[in-house]
Design a protein around this nucleic acid. Structure first.
Length: 208
DNA sequence: GCGACAG
DNA sequence: ATCTTGTCGC
């Protein structure tokens, strides 16, 4: 299925230079493992204020299998997106896009299914190799796999562990990197990820 | 055959 | 992802 959908990824579109409505998506799980809450928060990119949000509580649709992560979280994330009253200009996903064994991670899958520009911001690597990244905020190093540049290892704050940025859909890698720096002025993770993370955690706590 | 392996 | 205990730095 991933190999069939992969050709639908738009690698040409540079994406919006100045997106205003930027969405963060994240999922929290109950310890029992049979309940999850997905959240989407929409931020005004100019102020980083949350202007819209939605949640969806449900069951994991699939076990956790590295490389098949989207099949686990996609249904709940799409349900939350459907409950949004705003149309995001960009989806910032918790996981990878092209930095995937078949070049079709969660961010690509979400992008293709919704038709929206999407990028992946992962906290740990799935594939690829990279040279050490300089210590300062703004530094990055190409993430390479099998001769392809599949993303960038990005330092969002001085001395913090880098994050892994990759293209999902309708965005250039340059623009994806620019957006991540703009969304992470103070902390390691983009504000989109931070607000979505808090929301899905509280939605889960409320649900159980 | 062995190790790695988004969340 | 979640849980646990402790440590480091600002």
């Amino acid at each position: 299925m991933q190999e069939a959908l992969r050709p639908l990824v738009d690698l040409v579109g540079p994406g919006p230079a100045t997106p205003v409505m930027v969405a963060g998506l994240d999922v929290a799980y109950a310890q029992s493992g049979d309940l999850l809450a997905a959240a989407v928060t929409v931020l005004d990119a100019r102020t980083l204020a949350v202007v819209d949000s939605a949640v969806s509580v449900g069951r994991p649709a699939f076990g956790y299998v590295p490389g098949l992560f989207a099949f686990r979280e996609l249904p709940a994330l799409l349900a939350a997106l459907d409950r949004l009253s705003t149309r995001p200009d960009l989806l910032v996903c918790d996981g990878h896009g092209l930095a995937h064994p078949r070049r079709f991670g969660l961010a690509c899958h979400l992008g293709v299914v919704t038709g929206l520009p999407a990028i992946g911001v992962g906290m740990t690597p799935l594939i690829g190799e990279w040279d050490p990244v300089q210590r300062g905020r703004g530094s990055w190093s190409p993430l390479r796999d099998g001769g392809d540049v599949v993303g960038r290892v990005v330092r969002t704050q001085d001395g913090v562990k880098p994050v892994f940025v990759s293209v999902g859909h309708r965005m250039s890698l340059d623009n994806a990197t620019t957006q991540v720096f703009a969304l992470a002025p103070r902390y390691r993770l983009p504000e989109t990820t931070r607000t979505a993370d808090r929301l899905c955690r509280e939605a889960l706590a409320r649900a159980r």
